[in-house]
């Protein structure tokens, strides 16, 4: 690899990691699938709230996902 090639490669890397489109990720115009409502990480907050409340009051572990559980005298 010549010095010039190395520079270009390094620059490409720097640009990719700096400004956008990391190799793991996707392009902005490829966000159609992730934009679907049911693809949100917490698509049904009410279900999450009920579940966390029930498991908080019946099991020794709670939380992990975000702030949840807690604020209840049941445990």
């Amino acid at each position: 690899m010549s010095l010039q090639q190395l520079r270009t490669a390094l620059l490409a890397l720097a640009l990719i990691s700096l400004a956008g489109c990391s190799s793991l990720g996707i392009k902005p115009w490829e966000r159609d699938v992730l934009a679907r409502q049911e693809m949100a990480l917490d698509a049904y907050p009410i279900d999450t709230a009920f579940d966390e409340h029930i498991y908080f009051s019946k099991e020794a572990a709670s939380g992990g996902r975000g702030f949840g559980g807690g604020g209840c005298g049941c445990n």
Binding site: L11, A12, L15, I16, L18, A19, G20, C21, K27, P28, W29, R31, A35
Partner: peptide, 15 residues
């Protein structure tokens, strides 16, 4: 590459 990156950055906020 720079242009691709800039375009990405612009369209991300719209996505």
């Amino acid at each position: 590459l720079g242009l691709m990156a800039a375009t990405c950055a612009l369209l991300v906020q719209s996505a």
